[in-house]
Design a protein around this nucleic acid. Structure first.
Ligand SMILES: [Mn+2]
Ligand SMILES: [Mn+2]
Ligand SMILES: [Zn+2]
Ligand SMILES: [Zn+2]
Lengths: 140, 140
DNA sequence: TTGCTAGTTCGCACGACTTGTTGATTAGCA
DNA sequence: TGCTAATCAACAAGTCGTGCGAACTAGCAA
């Protein structure tokens, strides 16, 4: 994702108004590695801006997603998570606590075999599931 | 997944009753490579057994999943898909028509790097997205 | 064969998540 | 300053899946 300042410029260029709500969401996403849901982002936003609506958070995230500034990640466990890291990366997910971390896989593009003649791969998503160090500690 | 006959035996062994509904679902899943949703499986089931309920299809799929006889695959686009193929395999998905095919990746386990000290990987899921041969033909 | 009973089915309601709508109010920006 | 987009609140709707309770039935024992 671009920096909040760059996003402000981009939004203006594309005819979107730069509202305090949008700017707040830009800042909350900037450098955010928590892979938050719309709901959790809303909760943090509401602390700094009481009155901001969940609807607006969803709306702004959709806009950023459409612009390619954030990606949305569906891990199949409840709500979609949003990720300002749009580099080519993948995720590890702790099955116990749900924490999500970025990982980078370098033996790409992956080779595969199967009955898929002529299939053109555009993107590859890898999710590693398991147990994080903290949860391993607690259960020991 | 085991054969329908084997599943009948397993269900009896574990104290589950062998109902016509369950047997039908066993048969519909046997050798099924379509990666159906509960809904699509229900539609096919209802042709052969009018009156079967969607609730029962969900129920039986949950049981089979808990037994490890089917896996459920969340591609992040709508409903969960069910897969009687429980081998270690992955999937390609056509973004245009939604078709899902099995693929096998052999450079596993995958190496990755990131800030994930002590994370114990239990499973890896890979989804290749792109365009299938049929859809490429149609759009050409 | 009959009858019991625990397990099963079914239909409906509800829940979680996300988007749509409408109408009044606010506020960005040319 | 004025046009117009954006926000908000409130509510509805849509999708996917599950909780619940009444009615039913598979399996077993008498
Ligand atoms: Mn990420
Ligand atoms: Mn499969
Ligand atoms: Zn954990
Ligand atoms: Zn296709």
């Amino acid at each position: 994702m671009k920096t909040p300042e760059e996003l402000v410029a981009r939004f203006r260029e594309e005819g979107y108004k730069v509202t305090p709500q949008r700017q707040l969401i830009f800042r909350l996403l900037n450098g955010n590695t928590a892979h938050p849901t719309a709901e959790t982002l809303y909760e943090v936003a509401a602390e700094q801006m009481p009155g901001i609506s969940l609807r607006t958070v969803y709306q702004t995230l959709s806009e950023l997603s459409a612009m390619g500034e954030v990606q949305h990640i569906d891990l199949g466990s409840g709500a979609v998570r949003f990720d300002p890291n749009v580099d080519d990366h993948h995720h590890v997910v702790c099955s116990t606590c749900g924490v999500v971390h970025d990982v980078y896989v370098n033996q790409t593009p992956l080779q595969f075999e199967g009955d898929v003649e002529g299939f053109a791969v555009h993107s590859t998503r890898i999710v590693f599931s398991g147990e994080c160090a903290q949860c391993a500690h607690l259960s020991a």
